[in-house]
Design a protein around this nucleic acid. Structure first.
Lengths: 107, 107
DNA sequence: TTCATGTATTCGCCTATCCGAATACATGAA
DNA sequence: TTCATGTATTCGGATAGGCGAATACATGAA
């Protein structure tokens, strides 16, 4: 039950939490969980400019949350670990519950 | 397996991911999980200035991740839901596994 | 080598957020 | 009411991170 050492919390923050710091990156993670994709396919499917997607993917790649694989001139991105989505889903569930309890108190 | 609607992803981002966007706030969440505390106690235990802690707590409070309770002139903060820590621990575990696999590949 | 396709980066600007220092506010006791 | 304690906010400056537009780079086919 002890707090993890500060170095480990910084690791957690730098590698995962910071990567989740933009809603578009969360959207990209969910999209890649649904199916690995080319950069252009992601951009089309999510309605974002290609450079924007590429920049966000770089952030995710630098933090080792996605992996890449060449396919001719294209690059296929995929999630490095399904559990990232599980964790996001759990956060959504916690949020739902918290907001639910909160609205009950207010009523 | 479909992606959640963008509005829900924004909710998730605004309420939780953004709150995890500073390592000091993660530290505070872990500290509060260990034991609910006054602002000053938190500041002392974590070695942060009181206004800094207070500002971070406001962020957590506005996102409903902590609750408050008056105790004379002091204010006791506590985690709104234990699962927040479970989620953080799971993220740490995923990160450990990913980094482990990565170092195996490199060797 | 040249071109078409697909991806990554750079630039400049703008906004968000952090911090330290100072100060304002809230509570309860005397 | 006044004071001591504890908490919250404001201010200014610094930094980080986002975006659009333009451009550079990489790959494979011809």
């Amino acid at each position: 039950m002890a707090c993890p050492p500060i170095e480990e919390l910084n690791l957690l923050h730098n590698n995962i939490c910071q990567a989740l710091g933009d809603p578009k990156r969360i959207q990209i993670l969910y999209a890649l969980n649904e199916q690995p994709r080319h950069v252009t396919a992601l951009a089309d499917d999510l309605g974002m400019p290609q450079p924007t997607v590429s920049r966000h993917l770089r952030v995710l790649r630098q933090r080792a949350l996605v992996t890449t694989q060449r396919d001719g001139p294209a690059v296929v991105y995929q999630l490095v670990d399904d559990r990232l989505i599980f964790v996001l889903d759990e956060m959504r569930q916690v949020l739902r519950d918290v907001l639910m309890r909160q609205s009950e108190v207010l009523s």
